[in-house]
């Protein structure tokens, strides 16, 4: 069992937790992920690591309540525990040699982008952060980004906070004004990453994206997380769990990834509703 050391509600649907997992805390690097099960009969879900405290032996995860499993996890309180927590899995973000980068984060993806931004900043890299959310109530980690970025641009879809529009708007402006980044890290919804790549393309700026597909074991065994890359005109199949989760944004087939992400949409919606009903009954 893995204890929940702290729990914090970042916005109405996003929760931050610190989990006691000393072996994982000692090793995990920005960009890597863990797989957890809430209880003995639960589903395995991957979550990218949002931070670690090796001394305390804790790993921070930040997740959005979108389905049955995240709903159950979100109901857990500090002091309670979850049955499984394994990692760190996947490859760490490659940050070496980068002097000036742009971090583009969308929604809960900002939680994964943040440790990357922090690591880059700690290596003396100049970080520009563009973070986007649907509205002001959903904004998370703004202060953390400001603390490690030379410039932080906050965007909301409805303009209720920061500038109105999506994250590609200021990115394009910066690139058009002549800003040159060694690399852009785009972490968020697939569609956001797809359009970030499209925005960067005319300027030839390299883009790293972080994928979060369906997976079970996270060690290359199931192949559920496979994705097609277009590499030098050839189609290459790779597994996000062992070859990623970060990939060259120019190679990723986002349309395929979006389609595969909806494989269990019906099941998930049903399971989510069932879980909500169950939890509501317990409350009554």
């Amino acid at each position: 069992m893995y204890s929940i050391i702290s729990r914090q509600q970042l916005n109405p649907t996003v929760v931050s937790m610190e989990i006691h997992a000393p072996l994982v805390a000692r090793k995990a690097q920005p960009g890597q992920f863990i797989i957890l099960r809430v209880h003995e009969e639960g589903e395995r879900i991957p979550l990218t690591v949002a931070g670690t405290d090796p001394e305390q032996g804790t790993v921070r995860i930040i997740f959005q309540i979108v389905g049955a499993t995240t709903k159950l996890l979100g109901e857990k309180k500090a002091g309670e525990s979850i049955s499984d927590f394994v990692g760190p899995l996947g490859r760490a973000t490659e940050t070496e040699g980068l002097k000036k980068v742009c971090i583009v984060g969308g929604g809960v993806g900002c939680a994964i982008a943040m440790p990357v931004a922090q690591k880059l900043a700690s290596q003396g890299c100049e970080v520009t952060s563009i973070i986007g959310f649907r509205n002001r109530d959903l904004v998370i980690l703004e202060e953390e980004f400001k603390a490690c970025s030379a410039k932080t641009i906050l965007m909301t879809d409805d303009g209720s906070c920061g500038r109105q529009g999506n994250v590609t708007v200021p990115l394009k402006e910066l690139l058009e004004q002549g800003e040159r980044f060694d690399r852009i890290f785009a972490i968020g919804p697939l569609v956001m990453m797809k359009f970030t790549v499209a925005a960067a393309k005319p300027f030839g700026t390299p883009v790293t994206v972080s994928m979060n597909p369906v997976m079970i074991d996270g060690t290359g065994m199931c192949g559920g997380c496979r994705m097609t890359l277009n590499r030098n005109g050839e189609k290459v199949v790779q597994f996000a769990c062992v070859d990623g989760p970060e990939f060259d944004g120019y190679e990723v087939d986002f349309d395929e990834a979006m389609s595969r992400g909806r494989m269990y949409a019906d099941f998930e919606r049903h399971a989510y509703e069932e879980t909500c009903n169950l939890l509501n009954k317990e409350v009554q």
Partner: peptide, 13 residues
């Protein structure tokens, strides 16, 4: 890569 294609490993697991 279509939805509904599994490796036996994934399906059985």
């Amino acid at each position: 890569s279509l939805k509904g294609v599994y490796s036996a490993n994934e399906f059985l697991t």
